[in-house]
């Protein structure tokens, strides 16, 4: 852009910018187009290809299945079951991960002691531990939770560790100069300064746990859960419920990630300007 082109952007040009709702509508438009296209092709294929609706149900069957499970209550029970598991695991795993990760970042001895095991365990996907947890806990809730906690705590640990480790040493010096030490150094300086990377650890941990919980619920039959519902629907050949559940998984996963995790991240990162310092 040349200078005059920049100068030409006067307030009157800003007045010409479409209002916020118009821009939102425009964004929605671009998001909706491919969705509509997919739905149209889906419907055409389902109706005209001659493939059995058991394999490829038309949209109205999927919609009906969704409405049915919603009114019947299983949809909510499944959502509740899956999210409850996730929250338990994220709560426990993030506490463990944050504490050990912070100690690793701050104390050389903790780092030396944990870095080997951490890297080794990070190389083992949580799902690979299913046979083991099923032997230990049987087909119980605990067989799922233990793996979720494992995955979440390792992910959070790695991020917290690197977050605390990469703290600007001049901030530690300033904190020492202004009276922080020991526990107060941890709470007042190390933790907040590592917060952006801790939060992106939570985000990553959530998306990993989200994948694992679905698989886990398929392997370990529990009373309610989205993964369990997929498994159950296949057993009973209710393909439209399989599709309806997949749709639910996609939408809730996306919404949670966008609305909760992204905004938590944006809050710290944007406010403190950490992104700018990282660049």
């Amino acid at each position: 852009m040349n200078q005059s082109g920049y100068m030409a952007k006067s307030p009157t040009d800003d007045d010409l910018e479409p209002p916020a709702w118009r821009r939102l509508a425009k964004d929605a438009y671009y998001v909706l187009i491919p969705i509509v296209v997919v739905l149209v092709f889906w419907q055409m294929f389902a109706k005209m290809s001659g493939i059995s609706p058991v394999l490829f149900p038309p949209l109205e069957n999927i919609w009906n299945a969704l409405v049915h499970t919603a009114t019947e209550g299983t949809l909510w029970a499944d959502l509740g079951g899956t999210f409850l598991r996730l929250f338990k695991a994220v709560a426990a795993g993030s506490v463990i991960g944050t504490i050990i990760g912070a100690l690793m970042g701050y104390f050389r001895d903790w780092e030396r002691a944990f870095v080997g095991p951490l890297n080794f365990l990070l190389a083992i996907p949580g799902t690979a531990l299913f046979p083991l947890t099923m032997i230990w806990f049987g087909l119980t809730e605990m067989a799922i939770l233990s793996i979720l906690i494992y995955e979440v705590s390792l992910t959070v640990m790695a991020n917290t560790w690197s977050g605390v480790k990469s703290i600007d040493v001049s901030l530690i010096r300033a904190a020492r100069a202004f009276g922080a030490n020991g526990a107060s150094m941890f709470w007042r300086v190390l933790l907040p300064s590592a917060m952006p990377s801790i939060i992106s650890g939570y985000r990553l941990a959530f998306s990993r746990a989200w994948r694992i919980v679905i698989i886990a619920e398929m392997l370990v039959s529990v009373s309610a859960g989205l993964g369990y519902r997929l498994f159950w629907a296949r057993e009973f050949f209710q393909t439209e419920i399989v599709y309806a559940t997949l749709l639910t998984i996609g939408i809730t996963g996306l919404l949670f990630e966008r609305l909760v995790l992204r905004s938590a991240e944006a809050m710290t990162v944007n406010r403190w300007g950490t992104v700018r310092e990282l660049e």
Binding site: S170, R173, A174, A175, A180, R188, M195, G273, T274
Partner: peptide, 26 residues
């Protein structure tokens, strides 16, 4: 002793007032 650093070393997660209050809290 009150120290002023060349690289400022302000706490980015604290506001101006909170940064100034840091030592008082200690």
């Amino acid at each position: 002793r009150g120290i002023v650093f060349q690289e400022f070393a302000l706490f980015p997660w604290l506001t101006v007032a909170e940064n100034i209050a840091f030592g008082l809290k200690s």
